[in-house]
Write a protein that binds this DNA or RNA. Sequence first.
DNA 1: CTTGAAACTCACATGAC
DNA 2: GTCATGTGAGTTTCAAG
Lengths: 151, 151
Amino acid sequence: MDDLDRKIVTILQQDSQVSMAALSDRIGLSLSACHRRVKLLESAGVIRNYAAQIDRAAVGLDVQVFIEVKLNSQRREDLEAFEKAVALMPEILECHMITGEFDFLMRVCVRSPADYEALYRSRLSTIPAVSQMKTMLSLWTNKEFRGFHLG
Amino acid sequence: MDDLDRKIVTILQQDSQVSMAALSDRIGLSLSACHRRVKLLESAGVIRNYAAQIDRAAVGLDVQVFIEVKLNSQRREDLEAFEKAVALMPEILECHMITGEFDFLMRVCVRSPADYEALYRSRLSTIPAVSQMKTMLSLWTNKEFRGFHLG
DNA sequence: CTTGAAACTCACATGAC
DNA sequence: GTCATGTGAGTTTCAAG
């Protein structure tokens, strides 16, 4: 991971459909050298995959919520039960174990407040391992994720 | 956005480099019909862009932190000052205005605890509009974002 | 919506410097 | 690392049903 690799990754994070020729131009490398680096970044696992990025509103996911979760205990069985429940819910887009007052932070997207209420009432709050939850509704997004900042 | 469009989007969120032929096969449509739908989804803004997804650890961003932020007030000048400061910090990957005790939730990635300390001490806590912050260090990620769940 | 064909771009491998 | 080159694959468009 030298400076050229970071440039490549930065560009590909914004637009993975850029042609090798254009990419090599922008980083000041020959086409074949650039191509070789990209393939190396892929096989090294630096570049995981290529994905289409979707407009959340355009697909009707109008409600985005962050949820802090506290478990009954840190015992293995509670952790595993919670993780398993999270894995089974596709509306939970991400889930992080965190330090602080709560144990986990999750991001959830659903179509409507009613859908969130249903999810919350009948599928989240019923997880036995969960003792407490705090919902933070995302009112609007000031800054969206557009790739990691390198360097 | 019918069912076929949702199928297309779901596949492209996981792998945008799938060939049109393979994509059309998987959704059960002819190549040209499938191609037309993809282009429509792009021009309609449903598909925003195509991006390489990077392994955070592989690029040395070992520290991921969520930060809740409370402002001094909800006055326009405080909000704008905060947003402006956020926009200028590339380490802040996302920032959402939220309901609840705090006003904003941010995600930050840096290379080391020392880097976070420096960011926190000299660039975050010095924003005049900010009255309080709460740092939640991400210990590990149970579920990673891999695209929205449609349908 | 379908099939099929033509034109074009680019990826990829190769060999040479 | 740099060029130059050729083949195959995939994209894109178009005509016709």
